[in-house]
Design a protein around this nucleic acid. Structure first.
Lengths: 202, 202
DNA sequence: TACTTACTGGACTACACAGTCCACTCATGA
DNA sequence: TCATGAGTGGACTGTGTAGTCCAGTAAGTA
């Protein structure tokens, strides 16, 4: 769990280390990221790292939490408008546009961490799962709002649709990452949208 | 690219090394898999490894190819019947059953390798992408057969549906891996199936 | 000023790992 | 029987890395 810093300076240092670690992990992978490089980037000395974190795993756990926040906070504005059909379309367009910017590279940071650490460390897996849970809950809330407002029929199973939509996003990102081409994400999202659209009133 | 062994004994040794490496990689991850452990598992000595492969990366490339084959050959019987609605349903049930057996652990081996190595080595990324391509082509062939036989309407865009369906599979596997629960895969597949079903003749 | 606690710097250790090296085996063929 | 060369065994090297250690500093308190 690492030490809880009791001063502001400490808190900032800890935060700086996590941010640097997240960058290095994104570039080199979780196992390829060395503490030396994290320290150099932060910048922070060896003993600062071990002052704020028990060991590398503990640091990676903090990185996982920070990754959840980065991914979800980055979409917050879009999540806020998921309660209308137009908002849903804008969200999907934004995801594709985001991937296009990066040339198909990278995929979803949460999924990447999961693939690298999920089977090795159960605490980290649980953290990343909670990230997906929050993401899915935001989608579900949007769909539920559309049911309430009558944009979707009451028989729409929002839990199922939200789960299936997030799966389309994740799968689309995986395929696009493999092919360095956002087309797969576009198609996956179009599939998810068309499924949701089939629950619009006639 | 490593040496092409000219004897049967050599070929078998090479194959044994790849199989052992694939096991170790599945357990410890691509970077966590040490050549010592691969050698111990094969069994094969240090110099055998470097006789058949240029370096660790070259070995991992062979593992990626073998992983493609394992995943796709394992589904071949199911792929062969993807040309009917019943076959499609059986395929999706088999995927969920397979994941249930493993308690939600593991996810898709191709996607796992991609997450670990895709951004680090472009040759490996390309190999894994070709695995997804083959997978998607098999689904597309099945859907096309359903269009031909009249089980799907002619206006069904099979390229889009195949891509979107594979994305649902991959995304469902990611979410299920995170949650250690096959429900997400079940929901994702139900979404994909319902989308396809919407193109059945009325 | 003296004392205490929180925090910091960076040298140091132990080790695991990729990759090298060379002597050896053993089948094949003259 | 010897020569050849593909294939093999495993000790060895250098390096990068996680984790330890302790002396030092800054800031707060008596």
């Amino acid at each position: 769990m690492g030490t809880q810093p009791s001063t502001d300076r400490g808190r900032l240092t800890r935060q700086r280390i996590v941010a640097a670690a997240a960058e290095v992990v994104a570039e080199k992978g979780a196992l390829g990221a060395s503490l030396d490089e994290v320290g150099a980037r932060a910048p922070a000395s060896r003993s600062q790292l071990y002052h704020y974190f028990d060991d590398k795993n503990d640091l990676l756990l903090a990185v996982a939490e920070a990754t959840n926040d980065t991914v979800l906070d980055g979409q917050q504005d879009l999540f806020d408008h998921l309660g209308t059909w137009d908002g849903l379309v804008r969200w999907s367009d934004a995801l594709v546009a985001f991937l296009e910017e990066r040339g198909g590279k990278g995929g979803c940071p949460i999924a990447n961490l999961l693939g690298q650490l999920g089977e090795r460390d159960d605490a980290i897996r649980a953290v990343l799962a909670s990230g997906f849970d929050r993401w899915e809950a935001d989608i579900r809330a949007g769909l539920a709002a559309m049911v309430s407002s009558g944009e979707l029929r009451p028989d729409a199973d929002v839990a199922w649709l939200a789960s299936s939509t997030l799966a389309s996003v994740q799968g689309g990102l995986v395929l696009s990452q493999a092919r360095r081409d956002p087309l797969a994400l576009r198609r996956a999202l179009d599939g998810a949208l068309e499924l949701i659209a089939s629950y619009r009133p006639i």
